[in-house]
Computed example of a mutant assay.
Amino acid sequence: MLADSPAFLWDAREAATRAASVAHGHESTEYLGDWVLQAAVERQLEILGEALKNLRSVDPDTAARIPDVHAIIATRNILVHAYARVDQRRVWEILTDDLPVLIPVLDGLLTEADKQ
């Protein structure tokens, strides 16, 4: 792992954790009806995708160890550049299905970085 990688991993993990926290205590119907929650989640997913995009640029080997890294970056691109096409139901699925799998992977990579 390269020297700059842990900072990007930390940013990604923090953004993923913050976004996932929205799912706790909220139902999908509440999320789908609340533009403030949606905006908060979208911002954290943008940060997540940007951090992983930067990681992929400086350390493609570490980035390749993150499941669906290309899809995460693509989601960021949609949120930033194609905001009118954002499907909030899919975003809810990311919160409830994808992030709980991603966060432990990021934690593991950060633990590995700490041991170097």
Rank of each mutant, 00 (worst) to 15 (best):
M1K: 07
A3N: 05
A3L: 06
D4E: 12
P6A: 09
P6V: 06
P6L: 07
P6R: 07
A7Y: 02
F8N: 11
F8V: 04
L9A: 10
W10A: 14
W10I: 09
D11E: 15
R13E: 15
E14G: 02
E14V: 13
A15E: 09
A15H: 11
A15P: 06
A16L: 10
A16F: 06
T17F: 01
T17S: 13
R18S: 12
A19Q: 11
A20F: 03
A20S: 11
S21F: 01
S21L: 06
S21M: 13
V22W: 01
A23D: 13
A23P: 09
H24F: 00
H24P: 00
G25M: 12
G25V: 13
H26I: 03
H26Q: 15
E27Y: 01
S28F: 00
T29I: 06
Y31K: 09
Y31H: 08
Y31W: 10
L32F: 07
G33W: 10
D34W: 08
D34Q: 04
W35D: 09
W35P: 03
W35N: 08
W35M: 09
W35G: 05
V36S: 09
V36G: 03
L37V: 07
L37W: 08
L37G: 05
L37C: 10
Q38W: 11
A39C: 04
A39R: 14
A40V: 14
V41W: 07
V41Q: 07
Q44D: 15
L45C: 03
I47N: 04
L48K: 05
L48W: 09
G49C: 12
E50T: 10
E50W: 11
E50M: 07
A51S: 14
A51I: 06
L52Q: 08
N54K: 12
N54T: 04
R56I: 00
R56S: 12
V58E: 05
D59G: 03
D61W: 00
D61F: 00
T62D: 08
T62P: 05
A63V: 12
A64I: 02
R65P: 02
R65W: 00
I66G: 09
P67G: 05
D68G: 12
V69Q: 08
V69A: 12
V69K: 00
V69E: 14
I73N: 03
A74W: 04
T75I: 14
N77E: 15
I78G: 02
I78A: 05
L79A: 03
V80I: 15
V80W: 13
V80K: 13
H81K: 11
A82M: 10
R85V: 02
V86G: 04
V86A: 01
V86K: 06
D87W: 11
D87G: 01
Q88W: 13
Q88L: 01
R90G: 01
W92L: 07
I94D: 04
L95C: 06
T96A: 05
D97K: 14
D97P: 01
D97H: 04
D97F: 02
D98A: 07
V101D: 04
V101Q: 15
L102R: 08
L102N: 13
I103R: 13
P104A: 00
P104C: 02
V105I: 13
L106N: 10
L106M: 07
L106P: 10
L109I: 03
L109N: 09
L110N: 11
A113P: 08
A113C: 05
D114W: 10
D114F: 07
K115A: 15
K115L: 07
K115T: 14
Q116P: 09
